[in-house]
Structures are given as structure tokens and as C-alpha cells.
Amino acid sequence: MTVDLREIALPRQVDLRVDPIAPAATRIGELLGTPLPVVPNTGSEAVLWLGPDEWLVFGASEDQLRTALGDTPGSVVDVSANRVVYELSGPDARDVLEQGCAIDLHPRAFGPGRCAQTMLARANVILHQVDAAPTYRLLVRPSFAGYLTSWLRDAMSAAG
């Protein structure tokens, strides 16, 4: 069984909504050191695409983002306490997720730098593939975290 599950602490998370073609989006990209991803369901360790005008930003503070947003219409909300983050990694990680996730996680369709808001074992998750090991990050609401880790442990005992 070559898969590892651990809870990780991520820097603060901020939900950002802004028009991606507004100058403010460019300013925010400069602040983060990477442009806001506009390809659906992609992202990095700095920012994930959540919707055509919505992103989940890691690390930057609400104040920094609000300053960069200026008077452009948008919203900046700290959601650090909103989700628990798990990291599932190892050669069998994809087998584990595929037991409860309907989207295609095969490398031809999903790889490093891809993310998805979807259902894993009937729980809403944000799934982000970090590297090709593969390492996946699962961001889940705290009230679902106990259930999801039990499910993951069970799936890990069945995989591989």
C-alpha cells in the first residue's frame, strides 16, 4: 500500500471575486507573483480557479487583496477557517480517489496544476493535484472532514 494521507496546514485562504479582465485582476496577479488562472479548473499553490470570476487565494491577506482590488467591484473574504486540507500522495493515490470520485483523474485528463470542485464520496471537496507523484490536496468543510477521512482510510485499505 503506497499511499500516504496527512492533514496539512496551509497559509491563509481568501475567496476572491473580481472581473478577470479588470486592471485590478492584473494588480492581484502581480501581488501573488502569478496571474489569476483563467482556464477553468486550473491553479497553483498560490491560487485556484473556482469560477469564471472567483478564485481561492493562498497566503495573501485580506487587507493586501482589498488594497489591490481598490474600488473595482469585487469581493475579498477570508475563508481560512472554512476548510480542512488533506494531502493524499503516493503511486496509489489516484486508485483511492477513483473509488469515490466521478471525474476522470487519469493523467490524460487531470494532472499537476489541475483542480476541481466536485464530490468525493458524496462530500463536496476542492481537489487539487500538486505534482505527478501523484500528490492531491483535498479541501473539505470541517463538518465533513471526519467522515471523509474515515472513508479515505477505508478506501486506502482497499486500494493497491
Binding site: 477553468p40 469564471p52 476541481a116 470542485q117 464530490m119
Partner: peptide, 11 residues
Amino acid sequence: PWCGDRDETEF
């Protein structure tokens, strides 16, 4: 239109 084909349970 944004995320591609997904299961009905997500909608």
C-alpha cells in the same frame, strides 16, 4: 459550460 461533463448529482 465552464467545467465540462459532470455527474447530475453535482447540479
